[in-house]
Design a protein around this nucleic acid. Sequence first.
DNA 1: GCATTTCTCTAGTGGTCGCTACAGAAAAAC
DNA 2: GTTTTTCTGTAGCGACCACTAGAGAAATGC
Lengths: 212, 212
Amino acid sequence: MPVMVTGQDAKAQAGNGRTRGRPRSFDRATALEKALMAFWEHGYEATSVSDLTRIMGIGAPSLYAAFGDKRSLFEEVVRVYADTHGAFGDRALAEESTARDAVARTLREAAAEYTDPAHPFGCLVVHAATNCTSAEVERLLRERRNANIAAMASRIRADVAAGVLPAGTDAAALARHTGAMIQGMSQQARDGASREELEALAEIAMTIWPQD
Amino acid sequence: MPVMVTGQDAKAQAGNGRTRGRPRSFDRATALEKALMAFWEHGYEATSVSDLTRIMGIGAPSLYAAFGDKRSLFEEVVRVYADTHGAFGDRALAEESTARDAVARTLREAAAEYTDPAHPFGCLVVHAATNCTSAEVERLLRERRNANIAAMASRIRADVAAGVLPAGTDAAALARHTGAMIQGMSQQARDGASREELEALAEIAMTIWPQD
DNA sequence: GCATTTCTCTAGTGGTCGCTACAGAAAAAC
DNA sequence: GTTTTTCTGTAGCGACCACTAGAGAAATGC
């Protein structure tokens, strides 16, 4: 078995020299990605620790030593997801020159991403902790969803200020509409909608925008 | 304690005279409504049988005798929900003279219903079985969601055939858009959106419709 | 009154949950 | 080599899960 400590775990080796003692027998990043897929597909509660250890190919004590408890592992998974599979929205918001282009690109990419057979359908942040006995985990994802909508609203407000969008534009409502579309598309991807169907949905959704 | 057998339990008394033996000490319909609220708020998995017995005010054997097992109880809850709190869509579809009016009314009523503080936020059918270990329960609700969208599509197609909507109208996409809006609104109600915010959302969503 | 029927209460079933004590294994430091 | 440090595998913790056997309670029909 390959021993490749990726060096990302700054938790264990803080002040001491380097690596002492027996090295970890699994790749932390790979195991984390496996956990991500499991949580993405089944959600937080429905993915048990024994599911995780089986899928990640490690024992329970190794999991707890490397990732803390189940909730810490989930939080790390959410962070990784937001920086990779779930980053297309932020990327569009940062790279496109208008809010409208950013939203159009976000919806288009969501249609592709949410129906990609290479990984579970839909959005992990939308679904992974709905109807969950851990209130903290639910709050974690809810705040992330609301923060995304707030980011969109502020981007739209910037366009209104710059004169790119009409003065009367209701930025909050427009951002909320985009959020609702994303969440609805995610749900429908889980319910079996195809990429083409979601793309048609995205196209329709864009017709509400002022300049067209 | 009041003894009011509602007579709806046709399961027990099939061929025999009437009620024999000790009568049930609780009102079945009231207990069912309590179960509905619990499942609506916490979802299928996160509502345990001991939660249910506590909330319904009955012992576990009484629950199993009156409702079968947990899944049967949930299925009955879903049926009741669809006929009461969740019936506004079907009602609008049946009563309004055009698909457009039906959808507009549905979205408006969803904004009110999903944020009504008298009961849990959002839609039971959208949320109660997401990320669930029981595949059958997930399928039960998924099929209901997809059936709703199919019903809307067929209503829209009827309007196109009647010339109320333009000939080129993509009925399936328009229905899917409405479904996505409903699901997005339900998610946002759960995330804390107000009735006014959802009403603004509904109004925006209607601007995509051909005749306006 | 008595027998019959049905419900309710107590108490518990086996199973899974998230999590961990402990001992042995495997590496580095010396 | 020995010592030290860390990881891994076994085995099991108490708590909760959905569910039920069995006895007693409360109504009926006679």
